[in-house]
Design a protein around this nucleic acid. Structure first.
Lengths: 212, 212
DNA sequence: CGCTCTTGCTAACGAACGTTAGGTTGTTTA
DNA sequence: TAAACAACCTAACGTTCGTTAGCAAGAGCG
């Protein structure tokens, strides 16, 4: 249903997202994209202004989605740990709902031209700072004992952002299970982490982390 | 010293590594690379066979370095936790000693052509499996209580592999401090992690995780 | 001295790139 | 029914791409 009601422009964006993820922005030609959609390269320009416009739409749309989720999570009542958990889960929700677009968001933003590049980096930096503030607050209240707030933030986001390299929507692991397990590992550690309540079947993940 | 004794081919590889990291392989032209070295694009072909040969050399050299480090780490005497720690530290040593080449290794391998691509993926998969085996052994001996070995492995490597996005050799954080802190966070968790012995100054990391 | 090797040059190749111009078709709207 | 629009086409543009051919200057060595 959602597929049929998609405007041509959105269809282009969708195909482009898949191609940009698997081949990279620079290595994807407009002719590649056109072929994927069953038309000629020149025809794309009835719907879009330029190749980069597609990338801009993907990057800034995802930036907005991540941000909106985070703002919701920050409204969570409770202590810092619960806020951090909510933020992590929100991030993973966006990421698992749109894994391809997330991958493009993560890996291809560097091909944005100015002033879009600067705008994008500002957004990303803001997002990171929001996470850091949560950690900082938890440290201040004595809830956390994190020796290096900045590194903790970076490690946290790194772990989350790599999920798109191995997450497969058709796999057996639900986004909720991933959230649960990952959240537990990150907060409590791999080694000393408590077992999660639900038992998660072991054969859910593909053997490889490779991005194909 | 090491710069002056570098063969022309190695100089090309070095410049290419920096360019591939910052712009990506596909978006880096041979003319870009030549300009960086102060010569004409055609002149590069006195030293290399093709653009891809450079990428191959970077990717497989790094694969070897990661593997050699891991094999050393696996010889570590002691329990699984100590072995895992040694493996993590070895990985971070390679990564911090050659951050640019590591970034290329992580992000640009997809532009390898067959049969190099398959060879490369096999190596990466093997590497990942070695990590998983360590975790598995720790679980079996009762040392770890990791509910999802595969996800733990992926999360572990993801955290490590993203270090190149924020590590700056000229920063105040030494590779050893990074190893120490990261190892502690990963194994014991961000929240409940013990403070590391050494106090680490807070202003060492740049504000941003962006890859410039 | 003469030979070879290294290192670089200029010129140019065919292919692929993003994009534009201008035209055709079929559908919707006044 | 006529006008307007959406969607797509062919043809082609100027540019850049990776790469090759052929040549020249200098260094090291017999």
């Amino acid at each position: 249903m959602s597929t049929t009601t998609l405007s041509r422009k959105d269809q282009i964006e969708q195909s482009a997202t898949a191609l940009f993820k698997s081949r990279g922005y620079a290595a994807t030609s407009m002719r590649d994209l056109a072929t994927e959609l069953g038309l000629e390269a020149a025809s794309l320009y009835s719907h879009i202004k330029s190749k980069e416009e597609i990338l801009q739409r993907i990057c800034f749309r995802m930036a907005n989605e991540f941000f909106e989720g985070l703002e919701q999570a920050e409204k969570t009542l409770g202590n810092s740990k619960e806020k951090l958990e909510a933020a992590i889960k929100s991030h993973l929700t966006v990421l698992t709902k749109q894994p391809a677009a997330s991958a493009v968001f993560q890996n291809e933003w560097k091909h944005l031209s100015e002033p879009f590049l600067s705008d994008f980096l500002k957004l990303r930096n803001d997002y990171e700072n929001h996470f850091r503030q949560i950690i900082k607050a938890g440290n201040a209240s004595g809830e956390f004992t994190i020796s290096d707030e900045k590194m903790a933030t970076l490690m946290l986001l790194s772990s989350l952002n790599f999920v798109h390299t191995w997450y497969k929507p058709e796999g057996n692991l639900t986004p909720e299970q991933i959230s649960e397990t990952l959240c537990n590992m990150l907060l409590n550690g791999i080694v000393s982490g408590q077992k999660s309540q639900k038992t998660i079947p072991q054969e859910d993940l593909k053997q490889s982390i490779h991005q194909n």
